[in-house]
Simulated scan of single mutants.
Amino acid sequence: MRLKDKVTIITGGAGGIGRGMAMAYVKEGAKVAIVDLDKEAGEKVLKELQKYSPDSLFIQQDLTDRDKLSDIVEQVADKYGKIDILINNAHASKMASIEETTQADLDFSFNTGFYPTFYLMQAALPYLKETKGKIINFSSGAGINGHTNQGTYAAAKEAIRGISRVAANEFGPFGINVNIISPIAKSEGIMKWAEESPEYYENMLSGIPMGRLGDVEEDIGRTAVFLGSEDSDYITGQTIMVDGGSIKLR
């Protein structure tokens, strides 16, 4: 129960890595509020979470609506009285070469990934100051290695890494840790992508020294538990590669 009664917000919590982290968190005693646009999937995951933590919460919200982002934070704070951990996981993008990328493609990636991450950190900061809380953001090997046809996704993910490092420096004096997970996991999104781009997928898989995709709960979720717990109190501003050894940062 390393996260007993830790109030946690997880965006994109209705599936994939978000669901995996939510399940790992409630099993460690956390009170989790998942945020997602998909109402049906969100309510389904909520029922799973409530088996372990009856006080779990699902908030249906379009994260591209910036005016509503602070409402998410306020709703969680009003229900639980505090916020301990913010996990910015949600992100969507369209694959295209740089040559074919449109302004709409760029806007879509930044509006679903970078801007919600930035504004939710900003909105949650007063509460995280009170709890000396944790922030976990998400990056990707697409940005670190520069994967082809993922320009908008890579750009937004690297922007998230950059602002996370700034936040680590600015929030550190308040006792707030800010870290980044860069995962490879067997999520619904990855498997859909595998069907659409089988050669690219097989090439990625062959580059994983561990020889497998990560499990959304056991691998990514457990890493997020570590970063949300007091065990990681002296770690901040770091990109944690949870990718089976695919990328070795220096």
Rank of each mutant, 00 (worst) to 15 (best):
residue 2 R to K: 06
residue 3 L to N: 00
residue 4 K to P: 00
residue 4 K to E: 03
residue 7 V to S: 02
residue 8 T to K: 01
residue 11 T to S: 08
residue 11 T to P: 05
residue 13 G to W: 06
residue 15 G to V: 03
residue 15 G to I: 05
residue 17 I to V: 02
residue 26 V to E: 14
residue 29 G to T: 04
residue 29 G to A: 05
residue 30 A to D: 02
residue 31 K to V: 11
residue 31 K to E: 12
residue 35 V to R: 05
residue 36 D to C: 03
residue 36 D to W: 00
residue 38 D to Y: 02
residue 42 G to F: 12
residue 42 G to H: 13
residue 43 E to S: 12
residue 44 K to T: 13
residue 45 V to G: 11
residue 49 L to N: 04
residue 53 S to D: 11
residue 54 P to A: 07
residue 54 P to K: 08
residue 55 D to H: 06
residue 57 L to I: 05
residue 58 F to H: 02
residue 59 I to R: 01
residue 61 Q to A: 07
residue 62 D to A: 07
residue 63 L to S: 00
residue 64 T to L: 00
residue 64 T to C: 01
residue 71 D to L: 12
residue 74 E to F: 02
residue 75 Q to S: 07
residue 76 V to E: 02
residue 78 D to K: 11
residue 78 D to F: 05
residue 80 Y to I: 01
residue 83 I to P: 01
residue 83 I to L: 12
residue 84 D to R: 09
residue 84 D to I: 10
residue 84 D to W: 08
residue 87 I to Y: 05
residue 88 N to F: 08
residue 96 A to N: 09
residue 98 I to K: 13
residue 99 E to D: 15
residue 100 E to A: 14
residue 108 F to M: 09
residue 111 N to D: 15
residue 115 Y to T: 02
residue 117 T to K: 03
residue 119 Y to V: 04
residue 121 M to C: 12
residue 123 A to V: 04
residue 125 L to N: 00
residue 127 Y to W: 07
residue 127 Y to I: 03
residue 133 G to Q: 02
residue 133 G to F: 02
residue 134 K to W: 10
residue 137 N to T: 10
residue 138 F to H: 10
residue 140 S to K: 01
residue 147 H to E: 06
residue 151 G to E: 00
residue 151 G to L: 01
residue 152 T to M: 06
residue 155 A to S: 14
residue 156 A to C: 04
residue 159 A to R: 03
residue 165 R to V: 09
residue 165 R to E: 12
residue 165 R to L: 08
residue 174 F to D: 14
residue 179 N to G: 03
residue 180 I to S: 08
residue 181 I to T: 05
residue 182 S to K: 03
residue 183 P to E: 07
residue 187 S to K: 14
residue 187 S to E: 13
residue 188 E to H: 14
residue 190 I to R: 15
residue 191 M to P: 07
residue 193 W to F: 14
residue 194 A to D: 13
residue 197 S to L: 13
residue 197 S to P: 06
residue 199 E to V: 08
residue 200 Y to S: 11
residue 206 S to R: 15
residue 206 S to D: 15
residue 207 G to F: 09
residue 208 I to A: 14
residue 208 I to H: 14
residue 208 I to P: 14
residue 208 I to V: 15
residue 210 M to L: 15
residue 213 L to Y: 06
residue 217 E to G: 11
residue 218 E to S: 14
residue 219 D to Y: 14
residue 221 G to Q: 11
residue 221 G to H: 11
residue 230 E to M: 14
residue 231 D to K: 12
residue 233 D to H: 06
residue 235 I to S: 07
residue 236 T to F: 09
residue 237 G to C: 09
residue 238 Q to P: 08
residue 239 T to K: 03
residue 240 I to L: 11
residue 242 V to F: 00
residue 244 G to S: 06
residue 246 S to Q: 12
residue 247 I to C: 10
residue 247 I to M: 10
residue 247 I to Y: 10
